[in-house]
Amino acid sequence: MNPLFRTLSQYLTCALAATTLAACAGDPMESGLDPFAPMEFKEGTTKMPLNPPNPSTLLPFYVSQHTVFKFAVDTDSILIGADGVTRYIVVMTNPSGGQQAQYEGIRCDSFQWRLYGTLENNVWKENPLSSWRGIQSNVPNRYQAALAQGAFCNFNSQEKNIKTILQSLNPNGFTGGTKPTNSFGIQ
């Protein structure tokens, strides 16, 4: 065999081995940069509402046949956050007519909710102990589940279209998650 050809063959073999090793070094599983790994949730800044709920934009929604409370969401307050959180004002009315307003957020990806604050004497008070909690689907006052399943989420993804959310909240067709549906009303 020609010595020049042998040397060239050795160089090519070495180059191929080096390329193979370099490719292995860039393996996402080895480098810890797995493109398919779940993203870590990073919540954006949440500011309390400036005003109390607007009575003219309160939209009642169905929660459960077992609840004695009435629930409404202020449609002007619905904020579809880029961080994956849908924020809103909810107004709860007890059987004697007393009301409580809360500013909350829902995460569809983890099916969780968070209480940011409550309205006290027409002033929003931030909740200092606010943390993410699992949404309960099997309790009478399951209004977070009703909002998530009936309007704010498209399965486990945040609904990004406010028009779709408002159409889903329509009292004539709102299911509150009582039957399987997606945000387009397909069953």
Rank of each mutant, 00 (worst) to 15 (best):
G84C: 04
G84W: 06
G84S: 01
V85P: 05
V85M: 07
V85S: 08
T86H: 12
T86K: 13
T86D: 10
Y88Q: 05
Y88M: 09
V90C: 02
V91C: 05
V91Y: 02
M92C: 11
M92H: 02
M92P: 12
T93Q: 05
T93C: 02
T93K: 05
N94V: 06
N94E: 07
P95E: 08
P95G: 00
S96D: 11
S96E: 12
S96R: 12
G97Y: 15
G98P: 07
G98W: 10
Q99S: 12
Q99K: 14
Q99L: 08
Q99F: 08
Q100G: 10
Q100S: 11
A101D: 13
A101E: 12
A101M: 09
Q102V: 08
Q102D: 12
Y103A: 09
Y103R: 07
Y103S: 10
E104W: 11
E104G: 02
I106E: 05
I106S: 06
I106D: 03
R107F: 14
C108Q: 13
C108S: 13
C108L: 14
C108D: 14
D109T: 15
D109M: 14
S110T: 15
S110L: 15
S110N: 14
F111I: 15
F111V: 15
Q112Y: 11
Q112R: 15
Q112S: 14
Q112T: 15
Q112C: 12
Q112A: 13
W113C: 09
W113K: 13
R114F: 05
R114I: 15
R114G: 01
R114W: 04
Y116S: 03
Y116H: 08
Y116G: 04
Y116Q: 01
Y116A: 00
G117N: 08
G117D: 10
G117L: 07
G117Q: 09
T118H: 00
L119R: 06
L119G: 06
L119D: 06
E120R: 09
N121D: 15
N122C: 01
N122W: 02
N122L: 03
N122V: 11
V123F: 01
V123Y: 01
V123D: 00
V123Q: 04
W124D: 07
W124F: 09
W124G: 04
W124R: 07
K125C: 03
K125F: 05
K125I: 10
K125D: 01
E126R: 06
E126D: 03
N127L: 00
P128M: 00
P128E: 00
S130E: 01
S130R: 04
S131R: 13
S131Q: 12
S131K: 13
S131G: 11
S131A: 12
W132T: 15
W132C: 08
W132A: 12
R133N: 10
G134S: 09
G134Y: 11
G134C: 06
I135P: 04
I135D: 01
I135H: 04
I135E: 04
Q136R: 03
Q136P: 00
S137I: 05
S137N: 02
S137D: 08
S137Q: 02
S137K: 01
